[in-house]
Structure formats: structure tokens, C-alpha cells
Computed example of a mutant assay.
Amino acid sequence: MEYETVHLDITDGLAVLTLNRADKMNALTTRMRAEITHAMNHAAGNARAVVLTGAGDAFCSGQDLGDASSTGKIDLGRALRDEYEPMLKSVYDCPVPTIAAVNGPAAGAGANLALCADVVIATESAYFLQAFARIGLIPDAGGTWFMPRQMGFAKAMGAALFADKISARQADDWGLIWEAVADDEFESHWRKRAAYLTNGPTAGFAAIKQAIRGTYDKTLPQQLATEADLQENCGRTRDFAEGVVAFLEKRPPKFEGH
């Protein structure tokens, strides 16, 4: 696919997917959703970590209300099922670690796209906004799933009903994101985080994702069994062997990703 609304760069095992409609605050269109899905799936098979970020001053302002797919004639349910769901799953189900580097406002579906990533790192001047109630809608694109799990029922309900801006610092304090970083350090910081993931034990990271995400549906005994199974698999990897040898030799490990 030839990309018109996103830019994908894969260098030294790191894929950086940039939402590239800066003049529209990277608002989502039908084409953009398809391109994000395609680019994420491509990156998943060709990189050891993926960063999702935005061009210009915004991360993503949500649905482009000027797009033909946003008119009152659109079947919103169909759009969510056929366009949003594949896009969100391409991020959430990515087999390698993902970072949302939120470089500016993340509103509506744009906020929830960010929350699909394994880790959200935001610049301090960014904010998150569940704006749906302002036009008579509910938070979608996974918002009603992510928010109560990550910052609790009370904060999620207030964010949805009042549609207040949540600053990056508030989001950090409430547990909605991993961390908020000073603007002048933001890019260098997320790139260091991404480099760590890119050069880390990729199979082990995949197992971590599987283990932590599965906890909501399991009892403690079931989770302990899952941990044993996953740990058994991790213990058979070359990266585990390398990690142990590097520890004993008091040197940094050289992980190959398997």
C-alpha cells in the first residue's frame, strides 16, 4: 500500500509510524484507518518494537468530522466494526512491544488509539480528552474498556461525562499512561525507551504482554499456571541463556530477539 496519511520508517529494528495529517491535527479518516492498520501489520513482522506518534503539534484529534465517513448518514456501528476495530486490534495485538509517543493533544478516538499501545509516553504539554459526550455519543474506540481499567471507575466516569481535558501530568498521576516527560526531553526520552525495547528479549516481552493482559479473566491459581507455562517457554530461548551468561560475566547482554 502507498501511504498518503501516515509515514512508516523501519530502521535498525525500530518501526516509527507517524500519523501524517498535521494540518488536520492528524484527525482520522477512512483511508487513514486503513493505512494505520496496514502499516502496523507490516511493522509487526519487520521490527522488534513499534512507536506510534503524530506529526506537527498534535498526536491525533480523533475522527475527522469533515471526512465523508463522518456525515450524519454514516452507520457509526459499521464504521466502528469495519474500520476502527481492525485498526485498534493491529496496535493492541501487535506481537512486539509498542509505544504511543503522544506529542500533543490526543482527543476522542485519538486518545483511545494511544491507549491501545503497551506503553504511553506523553509530553507534558499534551492532554487526553474524551470529547464524545459533547456531541451526544459515548467514548468508543476502546475508551470504555481502557479507562476504568487504567485509572479506575470514578475517574473514567467523570472523564466520559464531563469531557474535561486530562493533562499529561494528571494522566500520569492517575495511572492512565506510563509517564509524562518535559517537552524539551520528550523525543530523546521516547527514543531511548524504544531503543531499549528494540534491543531487548523480544520473545520475553511478548510473554510479558500475554501474562499481564490475561489477568482480568483468571483466578490466582489459573494465573500461576499461566506464569509457569510462559516461563518454561522463555527459559528455552537463546535470549535467556545470553542474559544469564551476561549477568555472570558482568557485561551488557546482546539479545537477538529469540
Rank of each mutant, 00 (worst) to 15 (best):
T219H: 10
N26H: 04
E83V: 09
A171M: 08
G175F: 12
A159E: 01
L52Q: 01
D239G: 02
R236K: 13
M32K: 05
H38F: 07
T98F: 05
A58S: 13
G62I: 01
L8H: 02
L19H: 07
F205S: 04
A203M: 15
R21D: 07
A225M: 07
N46P: 03
F59E: 08
L115H: 08
V120F: 11
W178D: 12
A141Q: 00
A122R: 11
D140R: 00
D23I: 02
G108R: 03
V96I: 14
G214P: 10
E124G: 06
T71M: 07
A163P: 01
T144K: 14
E124F: 06
I212R: 07
V119N: 05
C94E: 04
P253G: 08
P95K: 04
K250C: 10
D57N: 10
G235V: 04
G152K: 14
E85A: 15
I208S: 10
A100T: 12
P86S: 07
P201Y: 05
L129K: 06
D183E: 14
R81T: 04
D82A: 12
Q150M: 14
A107H: 02
D93T: 04
A106F: 03
L76R: 14
I177Q: 07
A207E: 05
A111F: 04
V6I: 15
